[in-house]
Amino acid sequence: MKTRRALSESAVAWLFVAPALLAIGLVVAFPLVYSLWLSFTDVNLLRATGPAVELGALRIPLFRWIGTRNYTQVLADPLYWDSLWRTLYFVGAFVAEATVVGFAMALVLNERFPGRPLLRSLLLVPWSLSRIVVGLLWVGILDFEFGALNGLLLRAGLVDSAIAFFKEGWSALNVLVSVYMWNQAPFATLLFLAGMQSISDDLYAAAEVDGAGYWRRLWYVTLPALRPIVFLVLVLATVNGFLMLDLIYVLTMGGPGYDTTTISWHGFKTSFTFFKFGPGTAILYTLTALCLLMTVVYHRLVLARFEPEG
């Protein structure tokens, strides 16, 4: 009786998850494997003939297998490594900014003050914008010729001539980091806020009795309780940082020079500007490997460690 029930539960469960897993298998697993295959072939988009998998009327070209040549070619290109270091800087800076700013905003919004409800409801607005719009909006602020910020600074007499924010690769890259942070930090704030509100008031009361000031309470009560959320925010920001493409598209197109070219932009350009799908998918697959690594870290740090509590 008992075993039959357990069996049927498993079967029912699979019925429930089957449509989703099937769909994900079709739209994620299959393209993922096919892209992996492409990264080992000499893809010629113009050639319709050659080896292929045929499923009825559907004919999926397989192209010529060339082993790891795409990878060796891609990895031999100094641009790849430059882009990689740049990506790591971008991700690091973005994660730091998004976490710190997100946390600071959460601290402020966790206090009671007039206007808090309004601020809280507006909090998510930057996050809900398409990054295309985010980019446009910041062009309007930072532009050398007509940007509002330059206009204000000039008018206030704080600068003699307009600041060219996208002039140096270094400053352009940091502008990208900050703009992306503006877009993403609200989500971190949201998570932190939810975490802060789940901390019992008793803990604070106890700390206060012990004579702990605001900063000590923050350090000894708030932060430890938020540890899982800090990890979550870090990991989400890391992955988002690796993937960012659209802001680069509207703001810098990878320039000046290659100074804002990240791995994802490098892979995107190779695949869809020069139509070299072989090397392109190879580049994107190294990015995927990085993301997989992050997943393992995520799993180790967040799930494995905190699931027992939840």
């Binding site: 050398f144 010729e145 996208f166 002039k167 352009a172 197109m253 000046p256």
Partner: peptide, 17 residues
């Protein structure tokens, strides 16, 4: 020179300056 010329995306954009 205006350093932002480097990130303009067309000659038309540039000449408008």
């Amino acid at each position: 020179v205006n350093p932002e010329v480097l990130t303009k995306t067309s000659s038309t954009d540039t000449h408008r300056l």
